[in-house]
Nucleic acid binder design. Sequence first.
DNA 1: GCTTTCTATGCAACTCGTTGCATAGGCAAG
DNA 2: CTTGCCTATGCAACGAGTTGCATAGAAAGC
Lengths: 200, 200
Amino acid sequence: MALEHAILVSLLEKPGSGYELARRFERSIGYFWTATHQQIYRVLKRMESEGVLAVREVPQQGRPDKKEYSVADPGRAALSRWLHEPIEPESLRHDLAVKIRGAAFDDPAALVDEVERHHRVHSDRLARYLAGELRDFTGPDAPAPLDTGQELQHVVLRGGIAYERMTIAWLDDVLATLRALGAPTGARGGPQDGRPGPSV
Amino acid sequence: MALEHAILVSLLEKPGSGYELARRFERSIGYFWTATHQQIYRVLKRMESEGVLAVREVPQQGRPDKKEYSVADPGRAALSRWLHEPIEPESLRHDLAVKIRGAAFDDPAALVDEVERHHRVHSDRLARYLAGELRDFTGPDAPAPLDTGQELQHVVLRGGIAYERMTIAWLDDVLATLRALGAPTGARGGPQDGRPGPSV
DNA sequence: GCTTTCTATGCAACTCGTTGCATAGGCAAG
DNA sequence: CTTGCCTATGCAACGAGTTGCATAGAAAGC
């Protein structure tokens, strides 16, 4: 149900079309939410029919017309209600962690490239977040007295930065572990487990 | 699709019933995966019908019979194939981050209780992970020369520990920010920067 | 001229995941 | 002795999310 609320927050911050929302969620810093455009269009339509959003057709030149959505009063109320409800703390589901444990039944060294690729992606993300932070919050061009919304956006972004830094450090740890297992020198490690090894 | 692979890995580590898998995923340390029992039963049934799993009916005394699943050769092959495919790096979807940004349009102070609750949950999880690490990997009772599977389980667990520590630190940051916004009088009560407070 | 990319919206079909409910014996607390 | 919890499996319905496809004009590169 949280996509609905993410849309409400995003539209309160700035009204926009389904397409624009998709891009905010997809690439933007500070939302930490993903959704495809199909999902967004579908939910927008439902929310509009329920009266929590208002639409305005905006004719454009040189590009297709768009439907600009904004939050109606019932939407604001729904968001407020949700903010006062408790939500479940996240449990992370990390596909890569499954792969790492699975590598015990295959060749651990074969995962190195994959882990390095993830490392690059997270490093790029971190760089993008840090650039955004400098631009919007801590740089010389940022508004000096931040308002409430900006303070809150900043603390969320700091969360994203902390997450990427933690992930990068962990991936370094993973790489070191995989390499130690691949090059068994002396006492530690080595594929000498008692399990059925890499078949297939 | 990764639930299938998480099940394969878990069953390779140790065969078990749907019920047992549900508990491993639900509460256990080191999997970082969640699934309800219904989902697991459904997928197990499909995987069995596809021939990637084998079932064995195990009669029990004092409790209902169970179906113990184990990985068949095609399952091992499927896992191996998956391990060599690239996967998308995760993008985190944090409901709480949406709430925090949404609080700009409501009362930020009202989120304090919720954030504190999440803080407690993550602290408990961290304590559980650390206890597990001591028990299985770094304590005096842990097997001294870890085998490949154990090394990999340990590095995944270290990831969980790093995640919880990062999250707890971030929630501290969030709490400090919320409190600074709620008590605007103090010229510099802020967590790190000495910026002036809110101006809603 | 042709292909690709960007803006912009949408349908159809599918899988993934959650919630509510049902069954059923054993066990422990009140 | 009744209520509730634990083990163990499962159906039905719904909502969330993904993938493939379709349309369509404008701009930019080959």
